[in-house]
Lab assay of single mutants.
Amino acid sequence: MSIQHFRVALIPFFAAFCLPVFAHPETLVKVKDAEDQLGARVGYIELDLNSGKILESFRPEERFPMMSTFKVLLCGAVLSRVDAGQEQLGRRIHYSQNDLVEYSPVTEKHLTDGMTVRELCSAAITMSDNTAANLLLTTIGGPKELTAFLHNMGDHVTRLDRWEPELNEAIPNDERDTTMPAAMATTLRKLLTGELLTLASRQQLIDWMEADKVAGPLLRSALPAGWFIADKSGAGERGSRGIIAALGPDGKPSRIVVIYTTGSQATMDERNRQIAEIGASLIKHW
């Protein structure tokens, strides 16, 4: 067993022997301040990774656009098919120029040779490549099948209805392509620590998230040296922004954090800054 596999296998073990965790309302004060600064709703939840206990939450059962955070769930569904012998990570998928959609920095470079399922998941999570996500959605049967996968996990809230990039439209009061912070946090925890996926697939999923290259201005910008984070960000229309993450000190994750916002007129930089400040408060009061 590799060191990384050992780390993920012992996530519940280490967490069980940690000192009790206590909620700190100071972080919620910052979440509410972010709402004021952005002029928009902000949803927040913080779960203990081992027990699933909610440590703090704000608007945990209000719907927010998922945006690209759905790509972690998508690759979880792909990995479940791999575990069941219905898919192979090494299978190569070929596609054409007509398949390319807006923001496809990886797939646009491989029109000639195609990409493997493993490479597509890596591109979808680490670079948020939209064509990679659409190609992977095709392998599982489309958005409705991802929703069905989530329902089978016990998540009857999260739903995907459309493809990239239309799913980022974020129309107010439109339930399409949305989740709730509580539902997303619980589902992410199941994917990373539950028995739904094999140990190898859980490790692969967290490795992809740990290698995320496009979430630097968010929670990662607030992390002290030595902290662990595996995350996936999302951005959408109407001032929408979000991030889902597993993080913790001492090089291992111990909490799940989900943050979503929508309806702001603020710039992307300002949305990023507010999420980073929430992260800084979380870490300060850990």
Score class of each variant (00 low, 15 high):
E56N: 10
L89S: 12
I278K: 02
R255I: 09
R41E: 15
G39Q: 13
I206K: 13
R81I: 07
A183M: 14
P249A: 09
A230I: 11
V257G: 01
L137T: 10
D250L: 06
E195Y: 15
A183L: 10
R238D: 13
S51M: 11
P143Y: 03
G234S: 13
F64Q: 03
A266T: 10
M66D: 01
T179Y: 03
Y260V: 11
A124P: 02
D161F: 03
G43L: 00
T178H: 02
A246M: 10
V258Y: 02
A40Y: 04
L38D: 15
M67K: 00
S122R: 12
L120N: 01
I243E: 03
A123P: 02
E119T: 05
V31N: 00
S128G: 03
A133Y: 00
W227A: 01
S122D: 15
L100Y: 07
R202L: 06
D33G: 07
H94C: 09
A40M: 08
A132Q: 01
L191Q: 04
R91F: 06
K232M: 00
T262D: 12
R162Y: 01
A132C: 03
P224R: 10
L111M: 10
D33A: 07
L74F: 02
P143V: 08
L73Y: 12
G248D: 02
E61P: 01
N98W: 08
W286E: 02
F228P: 00
A280L: 11
S68V: 01
D33K: 07
D36P: 05
A183V: 12
I171L: 15
A185R: 00
P60H: 12
L146S: 02
S264F: 05
L111E: 08
D250P: 07
D155A: 01
L247M: 14
L111Y: 13
L218F: 03
S68E: 00
V257W: 00
T139V: 14
V106R: 15
D231T: 04
A123S: 10
L55G: 14
L79E: 03
K190V: 15
T131Q: 04
D177K: 01
E119L: 03
Y44H: 04
Y260W: 02
T112W: 15
I256V: 14
M153G: 06
M268R: 08
G52N: 08
E277M: 07
A34M: 10
H151C: 07
P60V: 12
T131H: 04
V157P: 03
A266D: 11
G90D: 14
G216L: 10
Q274K: 09
D177T: 02
E195G: 13
I278N: 01
N134P: 02
R91E: 14
D177H: 00
E87A: 15
A266E: 13
R202F: 04
M268D: 10
M209H: 00
K213H: 05
G141Y: 06
R91M: 14
L47E: 06
S264L: 05
G242Y: 00
A182Q: 13
R81P: 00
